Amino acid sequence: MSDHESWTDSRLLKVVAEGDRRAFEVLYARHAPWLVLRLTRRCADAGVVDDAVQDTFVAVWRTAHKWQGKGEVAAWIWGIGIRRLLDQLRGRSPAIIKDHEDVVVSAEEQVLLGIEYGELGTALNRLSPELRAVVQATVLDGLTSREAGKLLGIPTGTVKTRMMRARGLLREELA
């Protein structure tokens, strides 16, 4: 086992920002499997998921220096991953998707695309990053408060409090 494998995600990402390829490989090996699984829950097309994962890690390599050290690296990677999946889905016109019998756009995929462009997407973007991360983890990702807390590196009670605040702000915004 190399030194890199025992490093925290934060330390790995810091040296990835400095161009350390071995740190990037370890980060990829650590996070790509769960990212594939989570994106596959949102999109049945393995090719689209693979492209989104590849694009995610290209973005991680290129933008590692932008991570501010707040929250969990996994949550930061997930944010990039879901946006890359949406980018992949946006790149396919509904007519083209419908013409392929082996590719089915789920209702969830359509909702995700709607969130990106609709009033809800605008309202979500106006939330603070802390509140938005909780909404994404619990509502969009379907995690429990406990799971979201682990992912985001905050206590379960904080997840519940932030979700309550986010709901109130979203109600006001969408009213």
Rank of each mutant, 00 (worst) to 15 (best):
L89P: 00
L89S: 02
A137P: 00
G19Q: 02
R83G: 12
P129N: 06
S6C: 07
G47R: 14
V134G: 00
E101G: 13
Y117P: 04
V26M: 05
G69K: 06
L12D: 01
H31C: 12
A137D: 04
L170P: 01
E172N: 15
V15Q: 00
E109K: 07
L151F: 02
L39N: 10
D87A: 10
R171D: 15
D141E: 11
V48A: 12
R41H: 12
D45C: 10
I154C: 07
I154K: 07
V48T: 13
L113C: 06
D51Y: 10
R165E: 06
V134R: 00
E172G: 13
R132S: 07
D9M: 05
T156R: 15
A59L: 09
K160I: 08
Y28V: 02
W7P: 01
L112I: 08
S6K: 09
R162W: 03
A44M: 11
L89M: 13
W34A: 13
R167E: 10
R30A: 11
A95K: 09
Y117E: 07
D99F: 08
W76N: 03
G168C: 08
K160D: 01
V15L: 02
A133V: 10
L12A: 00
A75K: 07
G91S: 15
W7F: 13
Q88K: 06
W78G: 11
W67N: 03
T56M: 11
L86A: 11
V60S: 01
D99L: 14
I77E: 12
L120V: 15
S145R: 07
L13G: 00
